[in-house]
């Protein structure tokens, strides 16, 4: 009787531990602050981010129809507008929109999509770090 209840307990606590660690792992891979994400990209690129280069990258076209600012605005402390559908896009600057750059998977997804649209390729870690560094300087 005693061993039975003990084994049931340990099975449960094992399951709980597995569940909790899975949850923790998921959280680690997702939740972040903009500064942490920037630090990650900077570490990946191997050199410090440059604010001015980030602004230049964001506001100029790269051989295609759109720049980042076509949809996000030249100074993304305000809402932008999707270039083809006209749908409103919430401000990108983290100081204005607290949800921005707080989820690593979401950040990666949008860099992948939007860099493909703007440059026809994925962005490098250095480019992402520069853009994020510039965005972090923007105040409401």
């Amino acid at each position: 009787m005693h061993t039975l209840s003990l084994s049931r307990f340990s099975r449960r606590s094992f399951a709980a531990a597995v569940g909790l660690s899975a949850l923790t792992l998921a959280n680690i891979s997702q939740a972040a602050t903009p500064a942490e994400l920037m630090a990650g990209y900077t570490a990946q690129s191997g050199s410090p981010a440059v604010v001015a280069r980030g602004q230049q990258f964001f506001t100029t076209r790269h051989g295609r129809e759109w720049s980042c600012s076509t949809c996000h605005g030249a100074v993304p402390t305000q809402a932008g507008k999707h270039a083809s559908t006209g749908k409103s896009i919430q401000a990108l600057a983290p100081a204005v929109n607290l949800e921005r750059f707080t989820d690593s998977a979401k950040t990666e997804k949008w860099f992948r999509r939007n860099c493909n649209d703007v440059l026809g390729r994925e962005c490098s870690a250095a480019e992402k770090a520069d853009v994020l560094a510039w965005l972090l300087t923007l105040k409401p």
Binding site: S84, A105, K109, R112, R113, N114, N116, D117
Partner: peptide, 12 residues
């Protein structure tokens, strides 16, 4: 989706 009406809308 990677070529969704002229934009990349790819998903995992």
């Amino acid at each position: 989706l990677p070529k969704h009406f002229g934009t990349d809308a790819s998903l995992d």
